[in-house]
Design a protein around this nucleic acid. Structure first.
Lengths: 323, 323
DNA sequence: TTGAAAGCGCTAACAT
DNA sequence: ATGTTAGCGCTTTCAA
C-alpha cells in the first residue's frame, strides 16, 4: 500500500480518475465556462463518487480571499443577536458566509477576537460592541465596521449606530404627552451610549422647563413624587419595575416606566415594557453594507439610525392626584 | 513601481530584510529551537517592524489543520449561549479558537452551517442544537459532537445531553413535596427533549398513583382544580404565568408554576421562576472534551448529565382549601 | 546553526 | 475545448 488509508481526495485524484487535467476539474467544479458538457458531467460524477471537497485553505490561499466576513460580538446575550441576524441576512444575499467570535464582554478577548478572525482570513470584520479596543482595530488587516458607540472610533473604521440622543428625547416626549412632568432617569453604565441617553434626557427636560433628576438606582426614588422613570436600558427598567412593585406601588397606575432597546425582556415582564427600539436588524444590514463599501475601497463613514418608540403597558397617563 | 503599494509582508520579505532564509524566519517566529539567539532577536525585530503576520491559509494548508473548532448554534437566543461559554472556556484552556455559525433555527441553514464550518477548515464541530440533520453530520469531514437531542444521532458523532427524564421527575417531586397532587404539564414542541419531559412527567405521576394531565396550553386550565403546573420550558412557564395572572389568579398563592432550563427569563419574571436547570456550562465543557476524544481517534460516545432544581418564588405549598 | 528545496491543493494565465 | 505550468505563503525534510 502506497496510499494512506483514507486521505481526502484532491483535484488531482479526481482528474486522474476522470482522465482529464486538474484545471478542467477545477473549472467544472466551479461551474465555469470552458468545459465541454459531456466532460463536465463525467468530472462531476467522478468527483461526487470520490466524495471530493475542495480544500478551503488552498482556494483561499491562491485567491487571496475567503468569501466570508467575521462578526465580533461583545455579548451574545443582548440585542447584538438581532444585529447579527441583520448582518447574516445581507451576507446571505451576497453569498457571503458569516462567522462569529464571542468576546464575552471582555476587552482582552475582544482584542484577541479581532486577531483570531484575522487569523481565519475573513475578508472583513463587523464588531457588534461598544467595547472594541481601538488598537485592535488599527492592527486589523481586514476592514472593520463598528456597530455601537466605543469611546473612540479609529479613522480607518466605519461606524453604524443608533441615535441614542434622539431615543432619549422620544422617551421623554412620550411621557410628557401622557401628562407626566416629574420624570426621573435611571442611568446605565458609564459608556458612551448610556451617557448620551442621560445627557439627552437632561437636555430635553431642561429645554422643556422641567427639572431633570438622574438616579443611579430606582431605590433612590423612594418617597419622591416622581410619576415616571425613563431607564437607560430594558434590563434596568425590568429591575426597576420589580423593585417598584416590591415596594407596593403599581406600574403604570402609580408610576410609568420606559426602557430602552426593546429586548425580548420587554415583552416578558408584566406589565410589558414601553421602550425605545433600536433598529437592530437594520443596524446589521447597514453594517454589512458599510463593510462592503470599505472592501470596495470607499472611505469609512459614520451612520446614525433613528430608533422608534414601542408603547406597551408600562406607561399610562399621570395619576389624577399627582397631576 | 514594480511592487504593489501595500502588499502584506510575507516570510520571504522578512527573510530578505533580515538577511536570512525563509526557514529560519519560520522557526524564529514560531519560537522553535534551532535558531541562534542573536539571529532570533534580529528576525523578530524585523518581523515586528514590517508588521508581519503569518498567513493562516498557507499555514493551515501545509499543516493540514487549523487549530480551531466550529460551533453550530441552532438558536442564539436560548440557553445555547451558556453552552457556548462552556465550550469556549475549555477551548481557551487548550489554546484552541472557537468560531460560531448561526443556524437561526432553520434546518437548511444548519446543514449549510456544517458545510460552511468544514469550508473554514475547522478541526471539529460541536452542534448545539437538537435539529441538526443527520445527513449533514455524515457528510462532515470533521468530527462532530452534538449537544442536545436530535431525532437521530449518527453513529460517527458523540452526544452530550441533559437528562430530561430526570429533570421532569425532579419537578414533579418538588411539587409533590409542597403538597400538590393535581399537577398538570404544559407540553412543549414535539421534539425529543420535550417528549421526554412529557413522558417522564406522565410516568412519574402514574407511579405515584396520580393522574397525569398533559395540556397544549395553559388556557385549557381554566376552571380546573389543578394546583400546580410543570411547564416544558421557561418560555412556556413565563407565558403561562402571564396568562394565569391575567385571568385573575395568583402565582404561587393559587397556582404553583415550574419551568425548565433556567434561562435568564426565569429571574426576570415576577415571581421568579422555580425551574429545572440544565448544567449548561458543563454541557459545553463535556462537549469540548468529547470532541477532543473524537479527534484523538477514540470512539464516539453518549453522555447524559443530570439537571438540578432551582427553587424560586413561583412555587409554594398547596393552598389549604385545595388540599 | 543555517540554507535550499520540495511540496500542501488550488487557481489562473498561458499554451495547444 | 483541453492541457501545462507557475505560483499563493508556509512548514519541513535534508544538506551544508
Amino acid at each position: 500500500m502506497t496510499d494512506s488509508p483514507r486521505r481526502r481526495p484532491t483535484l488531482y485524484d479526481v482528474a486522474g480518475a476522470a482522465g482529464v487535467s486538474k484545471s478542467l476539474v477545477s473549472l467544472a467544479i466551479r461551474g465555469q465556462a470552458g468545459v465541454g458538457d459531456a466532460t463536465r458531467q463525467r468530472i462531476l460524477a467522478v468527483a461526487d463518487e470520490l466524495g471530493y471537497r475542495s480544500n478551503p485553505w488552498a482556494r483561499s490561499l491562491v485567491r487571496g480571499r475567503s468569501g466570508s466576513v467575521g462578526v465580533l460580538v461583545g455579548d451574545l446575550r443582548g440585542y447584538a443577536v438581532d444585529v447579527v441576524h441583520g448582518i447574516e441576512a445581507s451576507a446571505d444575499r451576497h453569498g457571503v458566509g458569516v462567522v462569529l467570535v464571542d468576546g464575552r464582554g471582555d476587552r482582552d478577548l475582544l482584542a484577541r477576537g479581532v486577531e483570531r478572525l484575522g487569523g481565519f482570513g475573513v475578508d472583513g470584520i463587523i464588531a457588534v460592541t461598544g467595547q472594541i479596543p481601538v488598537s485592535a482595530v488599527r492592527a486589523s488587516a481586514a476592514p472593520v465596521v463598528i456597530v455601537g458607540r466605543p469611546d473612540e472610533v479609529p479613522d480607518s473604521a466605519s461606524q453604524v449606530s443608533n441615535d441614542d440622543r434622539l431615543g432619549a428625547r422620544m422617551a421623554v416626549h412620550h411621557l410628557l404627552g401622557l401628562g407626566h412632568r416629574r420624570i426621573a432617569h435611571v442611568a446605565g453604565s458609564g459608556r458612551v451610549a448610556a451617557r448620551q441617553r442621560a445627557s439627552s434626557y437632561e437636555q430635553t427636560m431642561t429645554e422643556l422647563g422641567l427639572t431633570p433628576l438622574v438616579l443611579g438606582s430606582v431605590a433612590e426614588l423612594i418617597g419622591s413624587d416622581v410619576t415616571a422613570v425613563f431607564c437607560a436600558t430594558d434590563r434596568i427598567a425590568a429591575e426597576s419595575m420589580g423593585a417598584i412593585i416590591d415596594s407596593g406601588r403599581r406600574v403604570p397606575e402609580n408610576l410609568s416606566v420606559v426602557g430602552y432597546d426593546d429586548t425580548q425582556l420587554a415583552t416578558w415582564v408584566r406589565p410589558a415594557l414601553t421602550t425605545v427600539e433600536q433598529p437592530r436588524h437594520l443596524l446589521g444590514e447597514r453594517a454589512y453594507a458599510a463593510l462592503a463599501e470599505l472592501q470596495d475601497g470607499e472611505p469609512p463613514r459614520r451612520e446614525v439610525l433613528p430608533p422608534s418608540l414601542i408603547v406597551r403597558g408600562s406607561t399610562a397617563p399621570v395619576p389624577a392626584n399627582a397631576r
